[in-house]
Design a protein around this nucleic acid. Structure first.
Lengths: 189, 189
DNA sequence: TTATAATATTGATCCTGATCAAAAAATCAT
DNA sequence: ATGATTTTTTGATCAGGATCAATATTATAA
């Protein structure tokens, strides 16, 4: 149950057994059915999820009422609605289990408390933030420099799992193009 | 010289006088003429800048040879080519003084060394990363949800200084639209 | 299995913002 | 101050991807 999480943490930061147990004690398991929302816009409950199995999708609703996907999180990754997690504000995004998923989560309160008691956890969070920043910057750069076809081809090269595992609808949404456009791109026309 | 920097730091994190002096001792002044590059793509020297006066612009060159602006940093803000600063890699962006500028900078090596010796500095950096993440996420969201006219209007509301202080060319580049398009937007056509 | 809904494909048309081009205005250097 | 360069404006045309619409395919549930 906690093996993947333990490996994820200890691969990134050094901490003694007591501290590790202290950290783990705040993580609770959560099973989610396919399409279930484990976080909803407006919720006060902000959680950091670790995906043991399955896939999470974070998305928000655009002013025109349509959805826009922020990211997908597959096995062995952390995911949260980070802006709200950081700011302690109401959730501004939904988090959806795209597949039946097995999750572990820690509340924002517990997470931040650990930052003050376990220096290694502060380091861990720093690494998480640095990584999140890089991912985000790269994604922004891709939107600025690439057209839809190029964005799809890059995704296929760098993240084939997303294309293989997710529906066209979701992939198109992630790329910020229409299903029709993605269909045409895939058929090579 | 260091007053603005001291205020910036002490507004965000608590640290004793000795630690503060220890931090400040690593910051060196740098004056930059208008249009001077204080960081160049390919450089090994990665610095975190604090803008006492003036304005920095971080940009990269797109595959088609054109520039794309990542951000502007006016007075009393930190700025760096963050992806390279984090990763310790060669710079992938230029940093340009858009106006004659008075800067303070700290090297990546000194910055990271402080993280290990001064816990408050780790907190300070955490805050910086959290803020950078939020800014970046918001910017990505704006690109996904808004058209050029809407992006300009939002900039005008939320950051009028940019529009007032920078040339149309730079503002257009930041918004990822052509000068012609911005000119037409401004004239309300 | 069958009915129903959701997703994917294909075609026709439209619209926004890019591109190309030229003139006007502003800025800069000597 | 004056000439040279850069920036801004304005006009005409073009193209990529959205939209609308209809059909085909796949997935889901009873």
């Amino acid at each position: 149950m906690y093996q993947q999480l333990i490996k994820f943490i200890t691969d990134r930061v050094q901490l003694n057994e007591a501290d590790l147990q202290q950290v783990l004690s705040h993580f609770k398991p959560l099973d989610a059915k396919k399409n279930e929302l484990v976080g909803r816009t407006g919720d006060l409950s902000r959680r950091m999820f670790f995906v043991n199995k399955g896939c999470l999708r974070v998305y928000f609703i655009k002013p025109d009422g349509r959805e826009a996907t922020r990211r997908f999180a597959f096995e062995n990754t952390f995911s949260t609605s980070l802006a709200s997690f950081i700011g302690g504000t109401l959730l501004k995004e939904d988090t959806q289990a795209v597949e039946q998923s097995e999750l572990l989560y820690i509340s924002r309160e517990d997470f931040y408390a650990l930052l003050n008691t376990i220096p290694a956890w502060e380091k861990f969070y720093r690494g998480f933030l640095e990584h999140a920043y890089i991912i985000n910057t790269t994604r922004l750069e891709d939107f600025i420099t690439l057209n839809p076809r190029e964005r799809y081809q890059l995704l296929l090269e760098e993240n084939p799992e997303m294309v293989l595992r997710l529906s066209n609808k979701l992939v198109a949404n992630y790329l910020n193009i229409t299903q029709e456009a993605l269909s045409r791109i895939k058929s090579g026309s």
